[in-house]
Design a binder for these strands. Structure first.
Lengths: 238, 238
DNA sequence: GAGTGGTCTAGACCACCCC
DNA sequence: GGGTGGTCTAGACCACTCG
């Protein structure tokens, strides 16, 4: 683990454990340099991680202080925490997840999808629809398109677990980032049936393009989340 | 303007203007050091800005490359671009915005709101409900609570324009960050009436706690956006 | 004025990619 | 092996806050 990651992790633990609470001042950057035997840039980088995670604020001329922690950190049902990135299986790690594969075909992408995935409509993509179930509650239906060339070897068995696990652990490919757009929409009849919804229950739609670390988009997906079970959280910094 | 900001801005312009397009490699960090007469850390910082904005990806051992630009950048109707932070008036600057103040009272906050704003239920908050209209289209109803002590001098006239403008320009206070949670919900009857919605049209709800640069939360708000006119975009980086 | 974090430098070494 | 970006150092000066 990198130095700045380790230091950030240490501080995060100390805050979680109550060594520092709302409004408390953290040790000075100068002092932390001595404590950890590192340069100030490294300390700053660690602190900036905590700022990004919404745990602390820095005030030039004064110091670094713990933010008011609200209930978000206790919430279990958020789609993403902070601006981190993870798939469904990873987000709910440790709980009981099951998956029902509703569709698994190989097709040509539409113009729109081909454009987003930077490929030709002559190439092929997996066309996948999955219902993800958390502790026996149907949570989300995911519509996924992935170029077969970039993500070879997808089988039903993989779809029933985690595509991302397959990509990272088996194919050894690195996922870097995702562009997401969140909307509120109505559910389709199929979704009402699969997720046991009333006809006019709203749906939280997340459209996503995910990128490998080489910059290539490898996934275009639309997820329809039960509105009563899901929310999307983000921290914006000016 | 800071050096790294200026460099990032220059590169952003060059990308927008097509000097570099999808997949192109940007100049090496080493070369850019010479061009701009700065150290490598400064160049890296500038490049990291572009990564955060989703414009480029960096590959260790290879170089820095322009990402596939999708249509998001052309969209006008996003609530927030990237992970930036801004109010309604700022987001739609240059277009015709009007505001209808539906409620403006001073009350004690509920337990829940007091907790989020880190204040006592004995203190007072502004209790504001506003309908925001863009080019004659009712877009969003905002329910806002703000401690009167932190944001003094709010008047009807200010509500009809921009609270944030008042805070930053008149009160000279610095807004630093916001924690947001996005959900899909049903509209209320009042909202249906004000925004001319059908009873079961979905609503995109954004719950927000906004912070000053001293770390104090100064605003708790819930915004209900017309689902057909609004979306929320974010870039997640692993 | 003393002390904070913010920016920046000029270098070093490393992990990784590709030839 | 040669070149990329990633991390890190040990300093410097600056902008800001507060007593």
């Amino acid at each position: 683990m990198l130095k700045y990651e380790q230091i950030a992790e240490d501080l995060r633990q100390e805050i979680r454990q109550g060594k520092y609470t709302s409004g408390d001042q953290l040790p000075l950057e100068k002092d932390m340099c001595e404590k950890y035997k590192v340069s100030r840039v490294t300390i700053k980088r660690a602190m900036d991680e905590l700022v990004k995670q919404g745990l602390v604020t820095k005030r030039r001329g004064s110091g670094t202080f713990v933010k008011t922690l609200d209930d978000n950190y206790a919430k279990q049902l958020s789609i993403s925490t902070g601006n981190q990135f993870s798939g469904f299986a990873e987000t709910y790690k440790g709980r009981h997840i099951s998956t029902k594969v509703l569709r698994f075909e190989i097709v040509h992408p539409s113009e729109e999808v081909a454009k987003k995935l930077q490929m030709s409509t002559q190439d092929f993509v997996y066309d996948i629809i999955r219902l993800r179930i958390l502790d026996d509650v149907p949570m989300v239906i995911e519509y996924t398109m992935m170029p077969i060339q970039l993500v070879p070897g997808i089988r039903n068995e993989i779809l029933e677990h985690s595509i991302y696990h397959h990509i990272e652990k088996t194919l050894k490919l690195n996922i870097q980032s995702a562009h997401r757009i969140v909307r509120a929409v109505r559910s389709t009849e199929m979704e009402q049936e699969q997720m046991q919804l009333a006809p006019n229950d709203p749906i939280l739609e997340v459209e996503q393009v995910a990128f490998f670390s080489d910059g290539h988009p490898f996934e275009y997906s639309i997820s329809h989340h039960r509105a009563d079970k899901s929310e999307f959280s983000a921290i914006s910094i000016r």
